[in-house]
Nucleic acid binder design. Structure first.
Length: 565
RNA sequence: UGGGGUGUGGCCAAGCGGUAAGGCGGCGGACUCUGGAUCCGCUAAUCGGGGGUUCGAAUCCCUCCACCCCAGCCA
């Protein structure tokens, strides 16, 4: 379990200063404003934790608002998934669920005002025409031939646009600002476009849809947002939002303060909705909730906990410098959270049969084994019976015919501890005549020592996990690895498809688990000792036939040693 | 080349003029019937470079450099 930590960042400092200055009557209102055009990912989680976290800590509130201004990309599937994900992360917007679409009428009235005031106009240039006259980064643009049309004519045109008299793409309304502004966003930005598209919320009421830039600032203002927290790319739009609010008469001290922070990047994955969407569309993963996806739904399906993601958001901090966080940090967060929570069980991933020649045939001992063995303070966390018999399965990896340096597990003539059971000695190796492959082991067990230390005082190095062959439960394991083979997929303009990790999912069909695993319910988590934390997949598990997703492997000191050799 | 941002150890990130927190990673050790957990220790930053101001600068000023964002009728 994770200790909540106190966070401090430049945004909270700004909130502190505003409060100290007596702004907003002491209110703190934030918002999380997703566009419902895809599933939320861990980058959104950062923003969600930031916005809801500030609201919580300052006794304010955080709105959930869908910035649904573009019906051609949005859908209720996304609206629903977003709400589910935010709730799952542990946040509650109470009554404060909003939609930019609910402000369409109000925005329309405001647009009429701007037109009447000569601050906006209907432009019938083509999209290409507008682009060509926008200028370049270094040179200003040129004004539209329709820019100085009389207000009355603009108003008439605008109303007819709304009434559906003109085809899509035939005209737009633009703010009349400054075509020579060094800030391109101020070169008469488009406010409305015609789009005959059914909206998930307003249906076919409109054929005229506001641009995000025209909707966002006013939406915040309408809701009384005090601190409008967004990512860096909107920094250059801030002057535009201010311009709109100026024209509409919002007093400078009565509007949201926009604060920008750097979006999250994570190594070995991609974070843009566009890229994630194409992974789904091209079936390179199995949907938005594929456990390899950095989506909230994917992480949840993988077995991540809300606590671990919140802790992650806390640990990475918030700043304005572009950064890429090492996934190892995320993995540390989930291990940290799960380690004290998850019962320990046994699952042999790649079984190797061992016949114990000095153990009676047909005998089965039921060993009472605690779920948190050797864990001080957790003795009372329960136990289960684990069968022991003459034929076991051990992990193939735990046997080496010729042990490499520092290998401390089983090899011919050597002893190893069977976890929570006897000391096993390998007295023979059974091989396939044809291939020479090791297919079974012959062993003996130190009956004299029993479950205790050998009487002669000899030291037994390591303990390996095992399962009684006859009673073991066949399970399907899904071992997940990073989705990409390089830390920054897509960097330098390369096609991210070319660096997809072909081994990001390994399905292990022949694994054998101890009987208690049958008692796990869909959605349960456990630790398979010496392997990792696992999650019983809620969709693909059937009664008596669990499918377990590996959430994260345990830290593996041996892997490091082996890698070094 | 216009405008807007950002540069602190491998990766995040504190620091807000008084002489570089913390986390992750890496490395080593202790302990261990999970090569897990836990516990110790170590590692590594001329604070992007160069000037200046100051008794004193990562923090202030100047300048240079690098990187990111903006030319959707996307958000």
């Amino acid at each position: 379990m994770i200790e909540p930590r106190k966070s401090t960042n430049f945004i909270r400092q700004i909130v502190d200063e505003d409060l100290a200055a007596g702004k907003n009557g002491g209110r703190v209102v934030t918002r999380f404003p997703p566009e419902p055009n895809g599933y939320l990912h861990i980058g959104h989680a950062k923003s969600i934790c930031l916005n809801f976290g500030i609201a919580r800590d300052y006794g304010g509130r955080c709105h959930l608002r869908f910035d649904d201004t573009n019906p051609s990309k949005e859908s209720v599937e996304y609206v629903d998934s977003i709400q589910e994900d935010v709730r799952w992360l542990g946040f509650d917007w109470g009554e404060h669920l909003y939609h930019a679409a609910d402000y369409f009428e109000r925005l329309y009235e405001w647009a009429e005002k701007l037109i009447r005031d000569g601050k906006a106009y209907v432009d019938e240039q083509s999209a290409d025409g507008i682009r060509e006259t926008r200028g370049t980064l270094t040179a200003g643009g040129s004004e539209s031939p329709h820019r100085d049309r009389p207000a009355a004519e603009n108003l008439d045109l605008f109303r007819r646009m709304r009434a559906g008299e003109f085809p899509d793409g035939s005209r737009v309304v633009r703010a009349k600002i400054d075509m020579s502004s060094p800030n391109i966003n101020l070169r008469d930005p488009v406010m409305y476009r015609l789009r005959r598209e059914s909206h998930h919320r307003t249906g076919d009421k409109w054929c005229l849809y506001p641009m995000y830039d025209w909707a966002h600032g006013q939406s915040d203002a309408l809701e009384g947002i005090t601190h409008s927290i967004c990512t860096l790319e909107f920094e250059v739009h801030r002057p535009l939002y201010d311009w709109f609010l100026d024209q509409l008469g919002f007093a400078p001290d009565a509007r949201p303060r926009q604060i920008e922070f750097a979006r999250l990047n994570l190594t070995y994955t991609v974070m843009s909705k566009r890229l994630l969407s194409s992974l789904v569309q091209e079936k390179r993963v199995d949907g938005w909730d594929d456990p390899r996806m950095p989506t909230i739904a994917g992480l949840r399906r993988r077995g991540y906990t809300p606590e671990s993601i919140r802790e992650f958001a806390e640990r990475i901090g918030v700043a304005k410098a572009d950064s890429t966080v090492d996934v190892a940090l995320l993995e540390d967060c989930i291990r940290d959270d799960l380690n004290p929570k998850c019962r320990r069980m046994t699952c042999v991933h790649r079984p190797l049969r061992v016949v114990i020649e000095n153990y009676p045939e047909g005998k089965v001992e039921e060993l009472e084994t605690p779920y948190f063995p050797d864990d001080p303070g957790r003795e009372g966390m329960g136990s289960r019976k684990v069968p022991f018999s003459r034929e076991l399965f051990i992990e193939r990896d735990d046997f080496a015919e010729v042990p490499p340096k520092k290998f401390t597990r089983l090899s011919p003539g050597k002893e190893v501890r069977l976890r929570k059971a006897y000391v096993l000695k390998c007295v023979g190796v059974v091989k396939d005549d044809r291939t020479g492959e090791v297919i079974a082991l012959r062993g003996t067990v130190d009956m004299d020592a029993g479950f205790d230390a050998p009487k002669d005082g000899r030291k037994i190095g390591n303990a390996i996990h095992w399962v009684s062959a006859a009673q073991s439960l066949p399970v399907t394991l899904r071992l997940y690895d990073r989705l990409f083979t390089v830390p920054n997929p897509g960097a330098g303009g390369q096609d991210f498809r070319a660096v997809l990790n072909p081994a990001s999912l390994e399905v292990v069909e022949g694994a054998r688990a101890e009987p208690a695993v049958a008692g796990l319910a869909p959605g349960d988590r456990c630790q398979f000792e010496r392997r990792g934390f696992y999650y019983v997949d809620p969709k693909d598990s059937a009664p008596g036939k669990p499918v377990l997703n590996r959430i994260v492997p345990l830290r593996d000191a041996w892997a490091k040693i082996a890698k070094g050799q």
